[in-house]
């Protein structure tokens, strides 16, 4: 199973890189939904072959929320705000990709320094978690559209989720509920923000908020 877990983690890396390199919102939302599915599979593969009902329930729940509900909300927000592309990011797409690979090296380095010994499944879990968190931060910092920032926030949460799995493999429910609640609040707030922004300014470029300063 370690091999399949590795495959899933590699797919997580690739989707994160895709998020950094793509300008199309729809594709990014799909990528983040795909990440959600992968995340749901991680606990099952970690615990294979002794899967309890509770574990399966958690996995299915998180898949539903991360892969269907949240992306659906985002898609609606994007459609209502009528944006399809991230036009002028603070950091260009190619540069983001290159930064991404630097972050990946950094994540590998950091995870080597971490005194974690309880990893019985794969040594890739921690670096991928850290990398996904880094990518989320990078997206939030470098993108202008609110939708893209929410996607970055989701990626960040996904990273924390993986990280949680690396540690709380014994009793994941606590971490799980906390994370889900967190995401709900975030998406709720962001959804309202996107809606308001597009109504007030006819755009969801957060740069426009600068004009509120005066």
């Amino acid at each position: 199973m370690a091999l399949w877990l590795d495959v899933i983690l590699v797919l997580l890396i690739l989707t994160s890189l895709w998020l950094l390199g793509s300008s199309r919102l729809r594709a990014c939302i799909q990528a983040v939904a795909f990440q959600g599915i992968m995340l749901g599979l991680i606990p099952l593969l970690c615990a294979w072959p002794d899967i309890t009902v509770r574990l399966a329930a958690v996995a299915v729940l998180s898949m539903v929320v991360k892969a269907i509900v949240l992306p659906g909300m985002l898609r609606r927000a994007a459609r209502e705000a009528n944006v399809r592309y991230e036009v002028q990011p603070l950091i260009g797409f190619t540069t983001s990709l290159l930064l991404g690979i630097v972050l990946w090296g950094l994540a590998m380095h950091v995870s080597r320094q971490l005194p974690v010994t309880m990893l019985h499944v794969t040594p890739l879990l921690i670096p991928v978690a850290i990398f996904t968190i880094f990518c989320g931060f990078l997206l939030i910092v470098s993108r202008n559209t609110a939708v893209m920032q929410v996607i970055g926030y989701l990626a960040l949460e996904n990273g924390i989720y993986v990280f949680g799995w690396a540690f709380a493999i014994e009793d994941p429910l606590l971490v799980e509920m906390g994370v889900l609640l967190d995401v709900f609040v975030a998406v709720f707030v962001m959804g309202i923000m996107i809606y308001r922004l597009s109504r007030e300014f006819d755009t969801i470029e957060t740069d426009e908020l600068d004009s509120l300063k005066e």
């Binding site: 590795d6 890396i13 690739l14 890189l17 990709l97 290159l98 690979i101 590998m108 890739l124």
Partner: peptide, 21 residues
Amino acid sequence: VPQFLIAASILSIVALFLVMR
């Protein structure tokens, strides 16, 4: 196109890290 090619380099770099983790 440059981005497409740079993405290929990035794939190979990730592979390098995976091979020699």
